[in-house]
Amino acid sequence: MLQIISLLLENKPGALMRVTGLLSQRGYNIESLTVARTLDPEISRMTIVVDVETAQRQQVIKQMNKLINVLQATDLTDLPAVVRELVLVRIRTAQESRAAVLKEAEIFGGRVVDSSTEGFAIEVTGDPEKLGEFVDVMRSYGEIEATRSGAVVIALEAKRLRLQPPVPTRAGGSKVEEPVA
């Protein structure tokens, strides 16, 4: 099944490689991955969707949390969260179906970002499943090309929204916190 992981990681060289390397090393398939800076330029937020067996979900999170550059890895699959993705679709369509295409785009809350005699470029955001439907619909009108951004997610539980390191550290010493194992 698809697991949605939200990751806070230190913006250090090689941090991205550590995450993707770990996933392939442990045999997990990446469905999508996005990464960008947070409000704190030294910390990045990554959203990863991986295809794993349900029994392995906890193991994925635990392995992620072991990476030294990872500040926090959270499994948001079953938690209150908003998942969004963006798709850019170019469609080449005949004159007579232009109006229909625009109508469909509107239904999906799309925005035309380019228009030419050949067709349109349309931008849609939504949850990944909806975008799949949109792409299917567009395909029925003509030749298309689509680029998806991959999912981004934000947790709706206040306590999960943190940009601070999750564990208080004692300089030079080990960190002491009891995990709920």
């Binding site: 230190e10 500040l71 550290t169 300089a171 960190k175 916190e177 194992a181």
Partner: peptide
């Protein structure tokens, strides 16, 4: 260097009392 600061490095040593 007086101290090492690794905010993402978690070491749990004590063990859960209840467990």
């Amino acid at each position: 260097v007086a101290s090492v600061h690794l905010p993402g490095y978690k070491v749990f040593t004590e063990g859960h009392t209840g467990q």
